[in-house]
């Protein structure tokens, strides 16, 4: 995946071999992958749970801004998505 191809209209989805789920006992979203687990902080969980392969990064950002009454999250979201694609937590759907 060439990260430079990422833009606001890209549609991210959870990466192959990864699974996102809410863990009540840990009170957190976790990202599960072969023989490992990442416990996510609140904002990472909120972003990842919106990455369904159909919603664009722009729409994900708008939804987060609405849900949390925040403005101008686009830079934060994009930075997180770039990092997550690099770590293969996310892939970009064609």
């Amino acid at each position: 995946m060439n990260i430079s191809l990422l833009d606001a209209l890209s549609r991210p989805a959870i990466g192959r071999g990864f699974r996102l789920q809410w863990e009540e006992v840990q009170n957190a979203h976790v990202l599960l992958y072969p023989e490992g687990m990442i416990k996510l902080n609140g904002s990472a969980g909120e972003i990842l749970k919106r990455c369904n392969g159909e919603t664009t990064i722009a729409d994900i950002t708008a939804d987060l801004e609405r849900a949390f009454g925040a403005a101008s999250l686009s830079e934060d979201v994009m930075r997180f998505v770039v990092m997550a694609v690099d770590k293969k937590w996310l892939r970009i759907c064609p």
């Binding site: 840990q26 023989e35 490992g36 687990m37």
Partner: peptide, 20 residues
């Protein structure tokens, strides 16, 4: 080998859950 790549928790009096 079965590593869990989560941060090592500090020892606490009450153990956490058996995640693995």
């Amino acid at each position: 080998n079965l590593p869990v790549n989560s941060p090592i928790p500090a020892p606490t009096p009450k153990p956490g859950p058996p995640l693995w």
